[in-house]
């Protein structure tokens, strides 16, 4: 990111900008969801949009996630480009039919005659003391369904660039923003830019161990890498940016270089994103591995409401440093 003039933006503002820019460019874009217009969402991400685009394009819906998601799927099939705002990622369970049975399969089942260019924006991330039904990171659930793309921005810069690409994409894209990062700032170019879906980014180059970190786990990986650097350990950090499509080549190239890798993701560890990425590495870079592929996900428990317990369930820089050192020492690695 050298060259173009930058300013510091919050992730929240970056998302807002992406939507505003795209809506100015393309009149077929509408946005719908609960509390998106007057309230601008509980996280104030969409503040000001209804003033500019009016209630015809920024639609406050009743509290019926299946209802408005179904409307969006239909609108997308018939020429609109809807952006659906799902207030909490946990509500994905309510829209599974619309998303997974309808949006994901329409293009395929219509023999390519229909497509569903919609975006479902939602969030993820624990440690906000929101308890078990408002803290989940459910991206693995939709990543499992062919026909859906899944983006996981790791800062304001990615949030804006990926969302603009998602809006322009011909297929349904689900984008997960970590709700703890809405106020985090990052340099964002003044001028317009897009980030391609399916292209990972090497955030930090290193030679001893690779961290593949999604969304806010980027911050965990960066903090761990900084601490490891003090001990002379050079960690490389890869941000996949989108898990569907997954930029396997960038990940595998990094592992071939370092021989060690830990995959960090905030979804539950079992049957999740860490498992998928670890499996691909084991399949495709096995002979380059100098240690077992490590995984760190959220503990396999409902997210506790107790702050002390909640903090234990997510990956932390301390635990990542520990795991990395064990890997470097050649110890077999256990545990979540």
């Amino acid at each position: 990111m050298r060259g173009p003039p930058m300013r510091e933006l919050t992730l929240s503002k970056a998302v807002n900008e992406a939507i505003a820019e795209e809506m100015r460019r393309d009149p077929s874009i509408i946005l719908m969801g609960e509390d998106v217009a007057e309230a601008g969402t509980p996280f104030k991400v969409l503040s000001g949009l209804v003033e500019e685009f009016g209630p015809e394009r920024i639609l406050d819906t009743p509290i019926s996630e299946p209802g408005f998601t179904g409307i969006a799927v239909g609108a997308a099939m018939t020429g609109m480009r809807p952006i659906v705002d799902l207030m909490f990622g946990d509500f994905l369970f309510l829209v599974m039919d619309q998303l997974c049975n309808q949006a994901a399969k329409t293009h395929y089942m219509s023999g390519g005659k229909l497509s569903v260019p919609m975006v479902l924006r939602t969030n993820m991330g624990a440690t906000r003391r929101s308890a078990a039904q408002h803290s989940q990171s459910l991206h693995a659930l939709v990543a499992h369904i062919p026909g859906l793309k899944v983006a996981m921005p790791s800062s304001a810069y990615e949030a804006k660039g990926l969302l603009k690409s998602a809006i322009r994409d011909a297929d349904p894209v689900v984008i997960f923003e970590d709700k703890l990062m809405y106020q985090d700032k990052a340099p964002v170019p003044e001028e317009e830019y897009l980030l391609p879906l399916g292209k990972a980014e090497i955030l930090r180059e290193g030679r001893d161990i690779s961290f593949v970190a999604t969304s806010s786990m980027r911050q965990v990986a960066e903090a761990a890498a900084a601490r490891l650097a003090e001990d002379g350990v050079s960690a490389e950090i890869i941000d996949p940016r989108t898990i569907v499509p997954l930029d396997e080549e960038t990940i595998l190239a990094s592992v071939r270089k370092t021989g060690r890798v830990i995959v960090i993701d905030e979804g539950h560890q079992s049957f999740g994103v860490t498992a998928e990425i670890a499996a691909r590495i084991a399949e495709k870079a096995f002979y380059h591995l100098d240690a077992p592929v490590g995984r760190m996900g959220a503990m396999d428990v409902p997210i506790p409401f107790s702050p002390a317990l909640e903090d234990l369930t997510v990956p932390t820089p301390e635990r990542l440093v520990e795991r990395a050192m064990a890997s470097l020492r050649g110890e077999p690695v256990h545990g979540a």
Binding site: Q269, S270, P292, M299, D300, V301, P302, P304, L309, L312, T313, P332, V333, H334, G335, A336
Partner: peptide, 15 residues
């Protein structure tokens, strides 16, 4: 619940 989950995790992953 956490203790159980951790134990399970450790067992499942033990090389």
């Amino acid at each position: 619940a956490i203790a159980v989950a951790r134990t399970e995790g450790a067992t499942a992953e033990a090389p």
